[in-house]
Amino acid sequence: MRQSFPAKSAFNPDRDIPDLTGQVIIVTGANVGIGYETAKQLLKHNAKVYVGARSEEKATKAIASLKEQTGKEAVFLRLDLADLPSIKSAVEEFTQKETQLHVLFNNGGVMVPPLEQLTSQGYDLQFGTNVLGHFYFTKLLLPTLISTAAASPSKTARVINTGSFASYLRTSVDFNTVKESPARKRLGVQKLYAQSKFGNAIFSTELQRRYGDQGIVSIALNPGNIQSDLQRHLGSFAKTLMDKTILYPTPYGALTQLWAGTTDAGLSLGGKFVVPWARLGPTPAGSDDQAHAKAVWTWLEEQVANV
């Protein structure tokens, strides 16, 4: 209940985010919702922000709106997390423009889409986008993140992985359900969503385990129950009920990941799970299971080996 109805945040982004001049940051899914609010605060504090998004039209409108609100202009990065070659192209585009990446916000995602929807390579859309897509994006950006960490005063670079309260609702990944199969259909979209959010958590802890000694600070989080575009696949009755009972305005959703991604406190949170609003929370059961984390990582590596 504390995560669904948290106490007032002690973290105030206007007051507590430091000057980010010189920092290069990517926010996936930054054209809408929590990602948009995250990008807005980063721009207000002078970061150079790349908006990772599939639709150039929507991203262009978001960038124009961000400039109107902040006076700063974000940069569009064409990125379709549901298509592995698109991810590779996005990283190639980014690394042609930048030699540093201080923070990667793996924020974008999809929730409970129609069951028949799959990624371009035939993966469950939720796991393929939320987990596999962000894994591959992060993997390709790791050399830049590691070299940035080595050159930075803090000797760190951060990867902030947006999970959910649903991260607590599964304790393992069933590899029989991540592509089209009878087992996937039996699991259903709600449990597939929870599995993908658990996947965010276990990926985050394994990333920290593997690369923490090279300066990577990997943090997973529950942003809270937030009004956003993420609920677009819910029925109108369910969405209206949630809006009136448990959902907070969209800017609240950026609080916890901004705290993790920009403050000195966040530097000590590698491998942890943080919760609303901007505080350390319990680690989802199973996400620190090293044997299973290794199996998940190995599976993810195998899926992108020949892209």
Results as ranks from 00 to 15, higher is better:
Val189Tyr: 13
Ile226Tyr: 11
Met242Ile: 10
Ser9Glu: 15
Ser154Arg: 13
Thr283Ala: 11
Lys239Asp: 12
Glu57Phe: 12
Lys44Val: 09
Gly188Tyr: 10
Asn200Trp: 14
Leu267Trp: 14
Thr129Met: 07
Gly224Thr: 10
Pro18Tyr: 11
Glu92Cys: 01
Lys40Ile: 03
Ala150Thr: 08
Glu93Thr: 08
Leu145Trp: 03
Thr28Phe: 04
Leu247Trp: 15
Pro18Cys: 08
Thr262Val: 07
Ala265Val: 11
Lys8Arg: 15
Ala293Met: 11
Val274Tyr: 04
Val304Tyr: 11
Ser147His: 10
Ala39Val: 07
Phe127Leu: 03
Ser120Ile: 05
Leu79Lys: 01
Gln290Glu: 10
Thr205Ser: 09
Gly224Glu: 09
Lys67His: 14
Glu93Pro: 02
Ala10Pro: 12
Gly281Phe: 06
Gly261Gln: 02
Ala47Glu: 03
His233Asp: 12
Leu192Arg: 04
Asp174Gln: 11
Thr144Gln: 02
His45Val: 10
Ile219Phe: 07
Leu115Arg: 06
Val304Glu: 08
Ala10Arg: 15
Tyr168Asp: 13
Val275His: 11
Ala149Ser: 13
Asn130Met: 09
Gln121Met: 02
Ser268Ala: 10
Thr298Ala: 09
Pro114Asp: 10
Glu92His: 04
Asn130Val: 11
Phe237Met: 14
Phe273Val: 08
Ser89Gly: 01
Ser196Leu: 00
Ala64Arg: 06
Ser120His: 05
Gln100Phe: 08
Gln214Met: 14
Lys58Ala: 10
Phe11Leu: 10
Leu230Arg: 09
Pro143His: 02
Leu132Met: 03
Leu125His: 07
Lys272Met: 12
Leu43Ile: 14
Ala47Pro: 01
Tyr248Ser: 14
His233Arg: 07
Arg158Cys: 01
Ala278Gln: 08
Asn12Val: 11
His134Gly: 01
Gly212Phe: 07
Glu98Arg: 00
Asp288Arg: 13
Ser4His: 14
Leu258Thr: 01
Leu221Ala: 06
Gly212Ala: 09
Ala166Phe: 14
Ile160Thr: 03
Asn176Gln: 14
Ser9Asn: 14
Leu187Gly: 08
Pro113Val: 08
Val159His: 12
Met1Lys: 07
Val178Phe: 01
Ala10Ile: 15
Ala59Phe: 08
Ser152Glu: 02
Ser86Gly: 04
Gly212Lys: 04
Thr21Leu: 08
Leu81Gly: 00
Lys8Thr: 15
Gln121His: 02
Thr21Ala: 11
Phe137Ala: 04
Leu169His: 10
